[in-house]
Design a protein around this nucleic acid. Structure first.
Lengths: 181, 181
DNA sequence: TGACTCATGTAAGGCGTTACATGATTTT
DNA sequence: AAAATCATGTAACGCCTTACATGAGTCA
């Protein structure tokens, strides 16, 4: 049952940037990583427990703080590097908008237009989100991690701009279809 | 447990274009739809059986052929239209390349470069695939479905071109990071 | 006849989401 | 004191993939 469980990579990776609680972890994953990765809450705590049992993660006391946090261990770092080096498996595509558009003849032109308008406005909104993240990162004290963070932000920006352009074009195509028939 | 099962949409949609066997169905889904939708074999037959039990699909004899095929019924068409009109749920992102790149500091510059080169060549390859599909569709006898098919091909082309451009840019960024440090 | 494709399924089990449960701490 | 947030989990259950199983037709 070749699986593609990679929750450990997300968790160890996040902890390699900064020690934090499980709660903060799931927030970090839904906020920052969330643009290209998702984990559900029900996965994070069990994974954290597993990693702790394997000695890849430990409970650490923050310096001036009474709160306990999770920190990655030296062995955890090694494990993370090994996991990151594995080739990424290609994700299974599941694009509901394209599925609907493909059968657009059955959905009807108005429905298709609706989908495209929706896709366009969502893309524009997401673009704003990416720009906000970019500013946020650039406002922080620079670290060695930031350039890599920005690379993923850039990927998001390219993707949503492409989506917006496609939606725009496609709306024009739909108009032509309507006029021709 | 709000679910997002949409196998019925893919199956009914495909049968609305053309009656075919379950075997052909799974081929159609992995070939044409495969660029933006995936279904595993283990889903298709059970779904087909369910749809048949609900009277949305029937076994039909092809005209000059002895082979039996599955065909969508009138009620199936109604059901399909209703399902297509439902808003598409946003897919959960799971991009292994970006996950690795985000933690690029741990992966190392060479590993990152490797990922980007990989992403770029894959995008170029996919672009060729899309162009082939486009030509194939345009070579066929035109139908009312084709314009919608082409819309989804265009979406794929936009997406992979964006990916290629991003990978290209990002490789240059990595060079700058290396020279600076 | 042996290999290959067409064709139709079933079963086991991993993956992952959501809902439920509980309590401490902080803020208003 | 109430409400919100922080914090850590567990349980049920659906989704989906992979592996297994079986047989007919076709082509070299």
């Amino acid at each position: 049952m070749a699986t593609d469980r990679q929750t450990d990579v997300a968790v160890l990776g996040a902890l390699s940037v900064e020690s934090m609680s499980g709660y903060a972890l799931r927030q970090a994953i839904s906020n920052v990583l969330g643009h290209f990765w998702s984990e559900s809450f029900g996965q994070i705590y069990p994974t954290l427990a597993e990693l702790r049992a394997e000695g890849l993660v430990e409970v650490a006391q923050a310096d001036g703080d009474s709160k306990s946090k999770f920190a990655i261990t030296e062995r955890g770092l090694q494990h993370l590097r090994a996991r990151l080096s594995e080739p990424p498996q290609s994700e299974r595509p599941r694009n509901g908008t394209l599925l609907r558009l493909f059968f657009g003849r059955r959905l009807g032109l108005d429905g298709c237009r609706n989908l495209l308008v929706q896709a366009r406005s969502q893309a524009v909104e997401q673009l704003g989100g990416f720009e906000a993240i970019r500013r946020e990162i650039q406002a922080e004290e620079p670290t060695d991690d930031h350039p890599f963070f920005l690379l993923t932000v850039s990927a998001g920006e390219h993707a949503v701009r492409a989506t917006a352009a496609w939606a725009e074009e496609s709306l024009l195509v739909l108009d032509r279809i309507e006029n021709r028939s």
